[in-house]
Design a protein around this nucleic acid. Structure first.
Lengths: 146, 146
DNA sequence: ATCCTTAATGAGAATCATTTGCAACCAGCT
DNA sequence: AGCTGGTTGCAAATGATTCTCATTAAGGAT
């Protein structure tokens, strides 16, 4: 059984929630999508399996709480998630022009953030770093059209 | 004339937009609120001045583009902004329990981010760092109630 | 100062992601 | 197998944000 399955099972048990068919399907779908996804895309990937969009929305907070997925960003009016188990934390670089998202690792920044957390006795659950601007391709295009 | 006013004026001129009564009022209101605000709060602070909520929504992107405000975070389904002219960039620490927001400066992290940007030829326009978890007060309460 | 052109506004309707109410269902325990 | 309370699918509701459109008002030209 994959790691994320046992983790979800344990999480639900601890909270007194039930491991249902829909929840299992949603979790698996989230780990089969190897790109950012929103509620609708996740639901689409379950087409034909009779899982309602409402249940997808109801399950997303559980996956977040369980530390299985994280909110990658909000764009075009929707929340976009990504699964994180086994994935290193990373920074999101979002091009404001072409909307593409790039990722880099976050390792160098973490120790400094942890020092700041300790100083104010803050218990970190989640770090979100996103940087918006122009990717190299769009910079070139912007200069050409001047 | 305060700095933010001339900056907004110049920005609008450059883009061929008009400096209207509503826009002036909205800008001033944004700089009078010394806390995070969402569209509705900003609109409330203009009560009686006959500025419509739609215009507040229409002006927010202009203030963002002009670099006068920034999106501080999204919480409880709303976008929260803060004015930034003259304010140092900072990290947001958000307590998931009491929803309070704390701020620390960002100075130590910036140089490292800039190195990463240079490596991928990314032009940074905006850096957003928010960290969620538990503030020290809520940690204590959480432990007590176990 | 008045005209003119066109962007901008206020008010309300429309949109659309996300939530919720509810009756039927089923996971997990006895 | 029977209970029981959490869970679901569906449809309707919600609520932040956007859009429509008739009217108004910047700001350049006269």
């Amino acid at each position: 059984m994959p790691d994320h399955n046992t983790r979800f099972k344990d999480f639900l048990e601890l909270r007194g929630f039930k491991l249902t068919r829909s929840r299992k399907l949603i979790l698996d779908a989230a780990f089969e999508l190897h790109e950012h996804f929103d509620a609708e895309k996740l639901h689409d990937s379950l087409k034909g399996l009779n899982v309602s969009l409402a249940t997808v929305y109801r399950t997303l907070p559980l996956l977040l709480d369980a530390g299985l997925i994280q909110l990658a960003m909000r764009s075009e009016g929707r929340d976009r998630f990504e699964h994180i188990l086994g994935h290193p934390r990373h920074v999101h670089w979002i091009c404001e022009n072409c909307k593409q998202v790039f990722e880099t690792n976050l390792d160098e920044l973490v120790p400094r953030i942890e020092v700041a957390a300790k100083a104010q006795k803050f218990e970190i659950n989640h770090i979100n770093i996103s940087i918006s601007g122009l990717c190299w391709k769009c910079r070139i295009n912007a200069n050409e059209s001047q």
